[in-house]
Design a protein around this nucleic acid. Structure first.
Lengths: 132, 132
DNA sequence: TCCTTGGTTCGACACATGTCAAGGTAGATG
DNA sequence: CATCTACCTTGACATGTGTCGAACCAAGGA
């Protein structure tokens, strides 16, 4: 929330380093690229955070306040807050305070970037896969 | 290699629990789904492992032996071996011994599954319709 | 002003993880 | 068999990470 600038920087850096849609199997990642990308995957490499992400993404209006999220887990509030911070610093979600509550929403563009890195089929031909 | 059965089990379990291509934003992940999925992301949440993955995926013939991989990093052989094991146990790669060397290749179907979970409408045709 | 509710930060703890040296296994070649 | 190469496993260590209680901040009422 207060680190909106950091979120933007992270996202910009990822986009710059990874490129728009460079599939993983086309050419090996550089050390720098792998560091940037692994940040996102590491943020998603926790069951609680993955579930938080899907809870936010699938919530009505595309956003959810923290009070909508805490009840789902058997975890203390600081723990949820910590996980949300990790997701935020990875550029996967953004937080905004409106009155008493803080609302989070996902960054679909980052999910799309990551998805495109994984599979080559998104843009055009690449591998001799079973083609229609 | 010696745990080929485990690799199959992991992949089957992931396919069963996650489903074929259920996007993250459609409905919230269950606790079980998030646990299975987070295993894969956690395996990719390390720069060395991500780079290993891309090195294997982009290598000629779609496979690479360990000797092709160790020289790229400033890491001892046991460390590389450890990371390869993590990738293997996550179902992302398979290892096969042929003579003196051990060759690794990626499982594109798992990458496609993960990619499809992230973004709706991604790479559905590349999914191999995993059956039991 | 004080109190209540929603969220975060801090500090501390137990546990997980990345790393390497040493030792072990599998196969090829004498 | 002996030995060399390629690769893995073990054991140990330092660092990183998830968790929570306590304290703190922000906003909206009495």
């Amino acid at each position: 929330m207060s680190k909106q600038g950091d979120e933007e920087r992270v996202l910009a850096q990822l986009a710059e380093v990874v490129g728009c849609c460079e599939p993983l199997a086309r050419e090996p990642l550089s050390a720098q690229q792998s560091i940037e990308l692994s940040r996102v995957f590491k943020a998603m490499g926790d069951p609680v955070r993955l579930r938080l992400l899907s809870l936010i993404a699938s919530h009505v209006g595309g956003e959810a306040c923290v009070c909508d999220l805490t009840d789902v887990f058997d975890l203390a509030a600081p723990t949820i807050s910590h996980h949300l911070k990790v997701l935020r610093e990875a550029g996967l979600i953004t937080g905004e305070r409106r009155g008493t509550w803080v609302y989070y929403r996902v960054r679909p563009e980052l999910l799309a970037t990551v998805s495109a890195v994984l599979v080559p089929g998104t843009a055009e031909e690449t591998l001799p896969v079973v083609e229609a």
